[in-house]
Nucleic acid binder design. Structure first.
Length: 174
DNA sequence: AAACGACACAACCGCAACGCG
DNA sequence: ACGCGTTGCGGTTGTGTCGTT
């Protein structure tokens, strides 16, 4: 089912002509360092945002979506690359217990980390846990989240704040 | 040394939300 | 109020690497 797609994705080194065959002239697949340089240079000059304009004016054969993703996940400054620290892992588990699959929100709580990174980490972790028959959330995390969600509920009932109601429902899962 | 599976990472797709004319 | 283009998010898939058999 996916063979054709696979071959088009691995066409990176065919360079600019990589996947230009279809009705669109936009390239797909892995980014080259040359493309990275063009995108970085463009954003330095014009700033972030307006991604379709990036596509039109940068000379890149990439759709705006792809440019945005590349910038957000790899090129923007202050990105933390490398493995998650134990502290970050702990934080992710807690955040997921509270928020569920709100990757972008979780990324906002972890400076320098991207939603994609967190999502990837979580998905492989989930797979591993499920295969091992282990609980997804450690007991101490369950407890801590439960406590903090109750506190926020109390606060919410006092201040009539919006609270994190779906978070509470998430905590019911375990 | 080769085959295989698990894992980590990168990127695409579809959809919903948003802003603007 | 509505349509349209743009953006952001979450899910999914593809690919490379590494360890195990």
């Amino acid at each position: 089912m996916s063979k054709d797609r696979r071959s088009s994705l691995s066409a990176e080194e065919s360079g600019a002509g990589g996947n230009l065959g279809g009705e669109s002239l936009l390239k797909k697949g892995r980014w080259t360092s040359a493309e990275d340089a063009i995108l970085t240079e463009y954003i330095k000059k014009h700033g972030e945002g307006n991604w379709n304009a990036v596509q039109r004016h940068s000379g890149l054969a990439r759709c705006g979506k792809s440019c945005r993703l590349r910038w957000a996940n790899h090129l923007r400054p202050n990105l933390r690359k490398g493995a998650f620290t134990p502290e970050e892992e702990q934080r992710i588990i807690e955040l997921h217990a509270r928020m569920g699959n709100r990757w972008a929100r979780m990324a906002a709580e972890l400076p320098g980390r991207t939603d994609n990174e967190i999502k990837n980490y979580w998905n492989t972790r989930i797979n591993r846990m499920q295969r091992a028959g282990l609980p997804i959330y450690p007991a101490d995390v369950c407890l801590r989240v439960l406590i903090s969600s109750q506190e926020s509920l109390d606060i919410g009932s006092l201040t009539n704040d919006f609270g994190q109601h779906d978070d509470v429902s998430q905590t019911r899962q375990f």
